[in-house]
Amino acid sequence: MAATSEAIKAGIWSAFKIRLYEMPVHLYFLTWLPNLILQTLFYTLIALFAGGPTMAQFALVGNIVRLAALPTCIQTTYHLVADREEGYLTYLVTTPVNLAALLLGRSIFFSMEAILTVFIAAAILLPLAGILPTVAGFMLFSVVLAVICNSLSGLGLLVGSIVFRTRYDMVITSLVPQFLTIFCGVMIPLSMFPKWVARAVSFVPLTNGLAAVRNLLTGDLAGNAGLIAAELAVGTAYWILGFFILYCSVQYGRVRGSLERF
C-alpha cells in the first residue's frame, strides 16, 4: 500500500516537473491560457455565425469543458509516447514500481491542471454569455469536471497504449480533441445526429459528463446522477482497457526484445 502511494506521489511529482519544464508558469498564463480562451472564442464565433446566440451559448459551454481534454487526454498520451521515445519505459516496466499507480499519479496532476484551466476559462467566458451558475451548481460542476478529467485521462491512456509503438502517435493523438468536438455534443447537439451515433458516443468519455454540466449550468441540479455515474463508468472502462492493452503491448515488446523500436 505504501509503495503504491509512493508511486502515485512520484507520478504526480514527475508530471509536475516535466510540465513545468515544458511550460513555465509565466508562459502558461501569457500564452497557453490565452490560446485556449481564443480557441474557445473561435469555435463559439463559428457557432454564432451558423446558428445565432442559442447555438453560440451551446458551443461556448461545450468548448470550455472540452478544454479539459488537452491537459488530460493529450498529455497522458504524449507522456507515454515520450517514455518510450526517451528510453524510460524500459526502466518503468522492468523495475518493481506499480506502473498503474504511477500513471494514475500523472493523471491526477494533469486533471488538476485541466480543472484549473477550465475554471479560469469559465470564469472569464461564462459571464460574457450571461451564464452565472449558483453556488451549489458550481460545486457540482467541480465534481463533474473531476469525473470528466478522470475519463479523459482514461481515453488518453487507451489512445496512448495503442499509438505509443507507432510512428503516427502525434497524428492520431492530435485528432482526438477534434473527434470529441464533432461527436460528443460539444458544438453540435446529439439530437442532430442519427440515433445510433448518439448511442455510440454515449460510450465515449466527455459525452455524459458534458450533458450533466449543461444541466447544472441551467439550474437543473437534480437528476444528473445517472449521467455522472455513466461518465464514471465509461472512464473506468477506458482506464482498464487502456492499461490492459498497454500491459499486453509491453509484454509483447519484452518477449520479442522490441520495446524500444517500432
Binding site: I46, A50, G51, M55, L175, Q178, I182, I188
Partner: peptide, 15 residues
C-alpha cells in the same frame, strides 16, 4: 476534420 466540423455546423443550422 475542420471541414467536417464546420460543414456539419452549417448544415444542422440550415445555413
Amino acid at each position: 476534420v475542420m471541414a467536417i466540423l464546420t460543414g456539419l455546423i452549417f448544415t444542422v443550422s440550415g445555413k
